[in-house]
Nucleic acid binder design. Structure first.
Lengths: 261, 261
DNA sequence: GCGGTTCTGGTCATGGTGACTCTACGATCG
DNA sequence: CGATCGTAGAGTCACCATGACCAGAACCGC
């Protein structure tokens, strides 16, 4: 074994030009099931229009451009394919198995959250502008059917990460609008964790966390009115360590990269 | 905004051929400080032998080959540059800021653990074979000095991940040899967390976790002998969700990829 | 033997959590 | 109008994990 120092970022002859870099995103949102009225975790997918896996559903994504960072590529490809702008965006994992695609592709996969009211707002805006995305449909995140490439595996991993992260961070807020009741918030948690939570204990927990600011407004339904709450914007949605940096533009990306776009 | 579906894994004209994929690894081990006798978190780095950042220290790594998966590339480049084989290997993050290198490079970064006794064993084996790696030195993981590229940032993130993970998984065992005392294990935790732990409470905690198997052997020092423990090999070092797969060969990689090399 | 240090088994107070109870309040139905 | 229903919101209790602390056991060196 000859000992040659092969430090990265130093050109080497060949064998790298065949590898291409793609960026994909798993986007979650919670929509109310018209059936039982409970919240369900949904996910937009894009139907492939060419080989391989033509006509199968796949995660929205695209190729990484030479002049853009990974976060920017995730935002761009997401917008181009689905017309959606997420409220939270975080890198999930880099998938690079040799056989995951007929050609050699390394996919940097992101996962994102979308506020429930943004889904309809953004869709309406695109329809008004006449550029509503085609070949996009919403799927149950827990049972999306057979997807292209290794995307089933990717979705499972994204779900696991989401369920994990909801336990120790405030990312659930990324799925709600500005004002919400504790029942709204609990519904999001229940949809993600797929189990019922005790309303009283849930209230105690989120109240003690100090992340919620109670307002003096109430939402009246067919029962006792519920107080509306607001986020404490001073607190980050998720702690990503000493390197997390909130980007200036609306959406919050959470990543250890320092450069802005 | 024209709506073109740009699904990934589908060739597009140009602008991707300028992007190359590298793989780097942050490796941790705990070595006893000859000074105060406490354990210290150490990390091997490689001196760069060419531009850019010539003569600066950098993470071990190399280019991704077209025919190998990401995990395999991390193992290979780690072995080629440092001669080390880790006991634990996990993907950390994909760094792809445009300005992180003079040329466009996306680095898939891994982090790894090395058992204390393996460091000397593997080094001795390489020296006997006459292929001891050059340009490799060990650094204090908490203060590695100024590194090439964005590697300082990467090390900080890896440290944060390690400190986080040590709290809810058994990865600390990846830094120890087969048989160890509770004081050994506690020393590892103290080196990682950089604070003292109460011996009695620490004992209670790890005993209740069910991960340790007490042996009937003791280590005698200058004080009361301490019982030697062994890992419960049935338990994974770290839970990576439904997609974690232990590889057949010695080292345990923890990743959501399913294909084996 | 004696002091010093570590190993190892305990106690105690504290805080978070799940299970549960009870009252407040508005809507709806008879 | 008044009873009933179902949620909002507050409170109680047992349990468990944790940190701080204590004490005896066991060994070494003097």
């Amino acid at each position: 074994m000859t000992q040659t120092i092969l430090a990265p970022d130093t050109p080497r002859a060949a064998s790298t030009d065949a590898i291409r870099v793609a960026v994909s995103t798993v986007i979650f949102t919670v929509r109310r099931d018209p059936g039982d009225g409970s919240g369900r975790l949904m996910m937009p997918l894009v139907r492939r229009t060419r080989e391989p896996y033509e006509c199968l559903w796949a995660l929205p994504g695209g190729w990484l451009d030479a002049g853009e960072g990974l976060d920017a590529a995730a935002s761009r490809t997401l917008s181009e394919t689905t017309g959606l702008t997420p409220s939270y965006l975080e890198q999930l994992y880099a998938f690079g198995a040799v056989d995951r695609s007929p050609t050699r592709v390394v996919s940097i996969v992101y996962w994102a959250l979308l506020r429930a009211d943004d889904v309809d707002t953004q869709r309406a805006a695109h329809e008004a502008a006449g550029d509503a995305p085609e070949n996009v449909a919403w799927f149950d995140a827990n049972a999306p059917g057979t997807l292209a490439f290794d995307h089933n595996e990717i979705v499972s991993y994204a779900l696991w990460r989401l369920r994990n992260k909801v336990g120790y961070s405030r990312i659930a807020h990324g799925l709600l609008s500005d004002l919400f009741t504790l029942a709204d918030l609990r519904e999001v948690y229940e949809a993600i964790l797929d189990r019922r939570l005790d309303p009283a204990n849930f209230r105690r927990q989120v109240e003690n966390s100090g992340n919620l600011i109670p307002t003096d407004r109430f939402r009246t339904g067919s029962h006792r009115p519920a107080r509306l709450y607001r986020y404490n914007q001073d607190v980050e949605l998720a702690d990503r360590g000493p390197l997390s940096a909130a980007r200036p533009g609306g959406i919050r990306t959470s990543s250890p990269e320092s450069s802005t776009s």
